[in-house]
């Protein structure tokens, strides 16, 4: 096995999560893109047989997920490009958005239950903890954004045969 193949078989190596996006506008040195992927299952190529195709496919939803990139590659409107984020960025984003508020809500609820033991007070404390957690999540997210950890990167131009979100582990099939 060559060194390259060994590297590809290393499951612990940080991988990029890839997706395909359309360039919808170019403003100076900034390109605005909309993701092509329309379901979380990442199988747009088999959308004719997909039960989730009606969900989250409206233009407004895609517009809400519009993002910008530095247009160093000279992208033009209408081009399809492959963009990527580091795999651990998605985990960090999930933990920031969901785990922090849930943790503060559960801790404050448990403390209220231990101190008072009444459902109404526990509920109020949990709601307060949830709001506090959302505030902390906002701080944490802005820190991640400042460090550029949530920003997608341009990887390459997509060819016409590319489908969104293929299995991108870039590993060879197991030898027979």
């Amino acid at each position: 096995m060559t060194a390259t193949e060994e590297n590809r078989m290393d499951f612990s190596a940080p991988a990029m999560v890839e997706g395909i996006a359309h360039v919808v506008a170019v403003e100076g040195s900034v390109a605005w893109l909309e993701p092509e992927q329309t379901t979380s299952c990442g199988r747009c190529a088999s959308s004719s047989a997909c039960g989730a195709k009606g969900i989250g496919t409206t233009a407004s939803r895609l517009e809400a997920r519009r993002f910008s990139l530095d247009n160093q590659a000279g992208l033009a409107v209408g081009e399809r490009v492959v963009v990527g984020i580091r795999e651990n960025a998605l985990v960090k984003a999930s933990l920031t958005a969901y785990a922090i508020p849930l943790t503060t809500a559960l801790i404050s609820g448990a403390m209220a239950q231990w101190a008072e033991g009444r459902d109404g007070i526990t509920m109020a404390a949990m709601f307060g903890g949830l709001l506090l957690g959302l505030g902390l999540a906002r701080l944490s997210a802005s820190r991640l954004s400042t460090r550029g950890e949530l920003a997608p990167r341009f990887l390459r131009r997509a060819d016409t045969a590319s489908v969104c979100h293929p299995v991108t582990l870039n590993m060879p099939k197991a030898e027979k």
Partner: peptide, 23 residues
């Protein structure tokens, strides 16, 4: 709405999963 308000970049990343949860 909360995720969108807390951090638009987070919403761009994670918003795709939310509509599926309703069903």
């Amino acid at each position: 709405l909360t995720v969108k308000k807390v951090s638009p970049p987070l919403f761009q990343m994670l918003g795709i999963y939310l509509p599926l949860i309703t069903t």
